Computed example of a mutant assay.
Amino acid sequence: MENSKKPYYITVANGEISQFSTVSPWDYKIEATDDEVIKLRQYFDQVYSSDIKGFFRAHTPYLQYHYDRENDAIDDTNKLIYKMIYELGDEEAKEHIRTQGLISRIEEQE
Rank of each mutant, 00 (worst) to 15 (best):
E31G: 05
E110H: 06
I17H: 03
E91F: 07
E31N: 15
L63I: 15
R98T: 04
G54M: 11
A13S: 15
K94E: 07
V47H: 03
A13I: 09
I10N: 00
I30E: 00
N14A: 04
I30Y: 01
Q19F: 03
A93E: 08
N14L: 06
D90W: 02
L88K: 03
T11I: 02
I81L: 07
E16S: 11
T22Y: 12
V37Q: 00
G54F: 04
E110S: 13
Y82K: 02
G54N: 15
L40M: 10
K29P: 00
T99M: 14
D45Y: 02
S104Y: 09
I74E: 05
A13F: 05
K6E: 13
P61Q: 07
R98D: 15
A32Y: 02
Y9L: 06
R57P: 03
I10P: 01
E31R: 08
D75H: 12
D27S: 09
D27P: 09
Q100D: 11
K83F: 07
Y43T: 02
I74P: 03
Y62C: 03
T22N: 13
N71M: 12
V23C: 02
K6S: 11
V12G: 00
D45W: 01
E92V: 10
D76W: 02
E16K: 08
D72F: 06
M1T: 13
D45F: 05
E16T: 13
K39S: 08
T99P: 01
A93Q: 07
E36L: 05
E36F: 06
Y8V: 04
N3T: 15
E107I: 12
R98L: 13
M1P: 07
I52N: 08
F55Q: 12
Y48L: 11
R69S: 12
P25W: 05
Q19N: 09
V47G: 00
W26N: 06
F55G: 13
D45V: 04
Y28G: 01
K6M: 11
Y67P: 00
R98C: 07
E110L: 10
I74F: 04
T33S: 15
Y62H: 13
S4P: 02
R98Q: 14
V12C: 06
S24Q: 12
E92G: 05
R105V: 02
H59Q: 12
Q42F: 10
A58M: 11
N14E: 12
D34I: 04
D34W: 04
Y86G: 08
I38M: 11
L40R: 02
T33A: 03
G54T: 05
I106E: 07
P25C: 06
D34A: 14
D90P: 08
Y9K: 05
Q64R: 14
W26I: 06
K83Q: 13
R69A: 09
